[in-house]
């Protein structure tokens, strides 16, 4: 493994994901992906599931320097299995030189990762498939206009969990704990990442490189249209999520969890919530004190449980 980089200046300048995509301005997922690909390099094949990023490659254009295969919504990890196995077979049988090998990278949103693709992911993890998984988690079905997914946080507003007279809270469920679901398969490498922390992100990919088997990444990814936030503030929100403790940056190597970036002093979650349109109903027309407190308590509880 290379020595970890210390500053953003040490991250390669080469771009694998080129500008000019149809993604929204300020898309946190796209920024995440850009950093991830810098760490992964050119020799990758990205296996994608239905979501916003499906529209990155539109015939006859692709913004990637690398290869791409769009599958369907539930089965990108199965597509990765087919590609990985085929590359291994071709190399083993001498029909492809080993210099032609590619890293197989699954790229999906949270809807695919947390919900419809959970079984196909579990299968790939269980079979110890040698691949990367990047989940850009914007906490809802973004491409269809931002509806509730298993990743949607408590008390946020989505198209299918709108706050109203009978349900002023909006979403009543808590965010599913995908990290723990994935961790239960004991993959060699698993981490959460943030586009606001490219150095942490880059080093995690570099560390993951040494392992054969599943290397998994979940990135909390601000989504201006869905979160109803200013596109120029996406990185701030990604950073606030970490600073408030809502998004814990951590890694798990063969199941052993370590937090990689613990805020010295946690900011109140309210700082993170109050500027986002999807939480606006918690503050106006009346302040939903108890709900805000509950969110703070859940975050406190998490950090208490992990002993910090």
């Amino acid at each position: 493994m290379d020595t970890p980089v210390k500053s953003i200046k040490d991250i390669p300048l080469d771009e694998i994901l080129l500008p000019g995509t149809p993604a929204c301005a300020g898309c946190g997922g796209l920024l995440t992906l850009r950093h991830c690909l810098k760490a992964l390099g050119e020799n990758t094949v990205i296996v994608n599931a239905a979501g916003c990023f499906t529209l990155l490659s539109i015939y006859p254009f692709t913004p990637f320097m690398s290869s791409w295969l769009y599958t369907a919504m539930a089965c990108a990890p199965a597509g990765a299995q087919g590609v990985r196995d085929a590359l291994d077979i071709l190399i083993k049988k001498g029909r492809l030189g080993s210099e032609e090998d590619l890293k197989v990278v699954v790229l999906t949103g949270d809807g695919a990762a947390y919900d419809i693709g959970l079984a196909s992911t579990s299968g790939a993890l269980y079979r110890n498939l040698d691949f990367y998984y990047i989940c850009y988690d914007n906490e809802a079905y973004g491409n269809t206009g931002f509806q509730w997914s298993g990743a949607t946080p408590f008390a946020s507003k989505t198209g299918t969990t709108p706050p109203g007279k009978t349900v002023p809270t909006g979403t009543l469920t808590n965010k599913k704990n995908l990290f723990e679901i994935w961790r239960s398969h004991k993959p060699p490498y698993l981490a959460t990442i943030s586009p606001a922390h490219p150095v942490d992100l880059y080093n995690k990919f570099k560390k993951a490189e040494q392992y054969k088997g599943p290397k998994l990444f979940i990135a909390l990814s601000p989504c201006p249209p869905g979160w109803a936030t200013d596109p120029s503030h996406s990185v701030n929100f990604a950073k606030l999520a970490v600073d408030t403790g809502i998004w814990a940056l951590k890694e798990a190597i063969l199941g052993d969890v370590k937090h990689t970036l613990i805020p010295r002093k946690f900011k109140p979650v309210e700082n993170y919530l109050k500027e986002q349109g999807r939480f606006a109903h918690l503050f106006k027309p009346i302040r939903q004190e108890e709900t805000i407190r509950k969110i703070q308590e859940m975050v406190d509880e998490y950090w208490k449980e992990v002993g910090i």
């Binding site: 199965a78 990765a80 299995q81 087919g82 590609v83 196995d85 085929a86 079984a119 196909s120 299968g123």
Partner: peptide, 22 residues
């Protein structure tokens, strides 16, 4: 040979492998 997690995954893996050239 790989036993997949469903036929949906099975056909996907088969198609993807075929698309890779085997």
């Amino acid at each position: 040979m790989v036993t997949m997690d469903s036929e949906h995954s099975m056909i996907t893996a088969a198609g993807a492998a075929s698309a890779t050239g085997v």
